[in-house]
Design a protein around this nucleic acid. Structure first.
Length: 415
RNA sequence: CGGGGCGUGGUGUAACGGCAGCACGCUUGCUUUGGGAGCAUGUAGUUCGAGUUCAAAUCUCGGCGCCCCGACCA
């Protein structure tokens, strides 16, 4: 991708200091645009980051047997009445059809679709376990949208639902999902803490929240400084400075963002939708199930919230919108330009994705500032000076360490 | 939903009730390319409605919108 072709631009000026840091950086860098309170457009760069996050999630969900599907966003009222949530859920958007008197729910979650859906294909214990997931848009009529992309009224989410014969099988799968979640967050550059929380109005059982430690967070948790163990202060009896029940490390109270949540649903929704199958003894049985969510667009904001400095965003490698940000200096000179172009082409041949700052009318300073702001994990500079040595300059955004290196050495090094 | 704040060119801001100004951006031209370039040039604005007043960006009432604190939070 050439910077000269990007229809978005970076912005020099601060957008609104009162908002979240991640919001400011994502707007300045040209990743997102706010359309109203709680609704955002993802611009080319932001969209690439979202796809990268989604693909990481896909890989890890597929690895634990999840099958990807895609369900609709508008749901029939009757399904929501069956679960009792039509009347009880105050964040539920309801939309009227212009024809007749039909009202639909705009999906804040998908139990009301996925349970009747799976029911259609579930006849025997031999069909279990089943695990399905989707990457989709959710709508929640939040009383107050806040913190930029971290808490919107429309947002991206991965939701997975699993169905099992026994609570034991569910809990085994639940643990597998927990590990998969930690892996996903690690790949996104976040060292997530796992807290035990209440199940909300969802289930009488417990749930686990995955927390990213950040001042921008809305939750206060008490987290171990050594391992992933943590408790939400809403339910915790641990005190600041006490020792971790799991590893003995020190527990600290910290603010954090909820980036994932998994629930043991028991047979709640299975019963609501009379989801019966025949077990080994020929009896009718209701499966137990779990659900597993990750806010994908919120994750974008959370990563930026955690990974930035005074110059801009610092993308962790796996979610960086490009492998390399290539900066061409002095491109008005023909030989420098063709050198830069050949570097761009060669990196592409080596299957590296490159954002190439090919602007001939921008000063060098401007390009460095833009690159640091946009935060691509690796930067490569070409210039007249470097051309003379037949070298390029290689720099990692996270530590700013600079290396002079030949192009082929560079490719070998980062492939 | 309770409380508070704010609404001025594309962006960020200034203006006692009395000529709407600045910076950035953008246009055009020339010069510039190793850390947000220089000169010249042009461009564009008071959220909406009602009211008070000789006169409203400024005061009053209402609408709409956004932000913050709290409450809420699959």
């Amino acid at each position: 991708m050439r910077v000269s072709n990007l229809f978005t631009k970076t912005r020099k000026l601060t957008v609104d200091e009162t908002k979240a840091k991640s919001h400011e950086l994502l707007v300045q860098g040209g990743y997102i645009n706010q359309e109203m309170a709680g609704a955002y457009s993802l611009l080319p760069l932001g969209n690439i980051v979202l796809r990268k996050i989604e693909n990481i999630i896909r890989e890890e969900m597929n690895a634990i047997g999840g099958q990807e599907i895609l369900m609709p966003s508008i749901h029939p009222q009757s399904n929501w009445e069956k679960t009792g949530r039509w009347g009880s859920m105050d964040i539920l958007f309801k939309v009227d059809s212009r024809w007749g008197n039909t009202t639909y729910a705009l999906a804040p979650s998908h139990e009301e679709i996925v349970f009747p859906l799976v029911k259609k294909f579930l006849f025997s214990y031999k069909d279990l376990p089943i695990s399905v997931y989707q990457l989709q848009t959710k709508f929640r009529d939040e009383k107050r949208a806040k913190s930029g992309i971290i808490r919107g009224r429309e947002f991206g989410m991965k939701d997975m639902y699993s169905f099992h014969e026994t609570p034991e099988d569910l809990s085994q799968y639940y643990e597998k999902a927990k590990e998969a979640y930690l892996k996903i967050f690690r790949r996104c550059g976040i060292d997530a803490k796992v807290t035990i929380a209440s199940g909300g109005d969802f289930t009488k059982k417990y749930s686990h929240e995955f927390m990213a430690i950040s001042e921008a967070g809305e939750d206060l948790i008490i987290a171990c400084t050594l391992c992933t163990y943590a408790e939400n202060t809403e339910v915790s009896e641990l005190e600041e400075g006490s020792s971790c029940p799991k590893c003995g490390g020190k527990m600290n109270a910290v603010k954090s963002i909820e980036i994932g949540n998994i629930f043991d649903l028991g047979d709640k929704f299975g019963r609501d939708f009379e989801m019966e199958y025949t077990d080994r003894e020929g009896n009718k049985k209701i499966p137990v199930s779990g659900c597993y969510g990750i806010g994908t667009t919120r994750l974008i904001g959370s990563i930026v919230e955690i990974s930035n400095d005074e110059k801009g965003i610092i993308w962790p490698e796996e979610v960086s919108p490009f492998d390399i940000h290539l900066i061409g200096l002095g491109l008005d000179k023909e030989e420098v330009k063709s050198f830069a172009e050949s570097v761009y082409n060669r990196l592409g041949e080596a299957k590296l994705s490159v954002l190439y700052d090919d602007r001939e009318d921008a000063s060098g300073g401007f390009k460095f500032k833009d690159a640091d702001l946009m935060g691509v994990a690796k930067q490569v500079v070409v210039s007249e000076k470097l051309l003379a040595q037949n070298k390029v300059e290689y720099k990692r955004r996270e530590n700013g360490k600079v290396e002079l290196i030949s192009l082929e050495e560079l490719i070998k090094k980062i492939k």
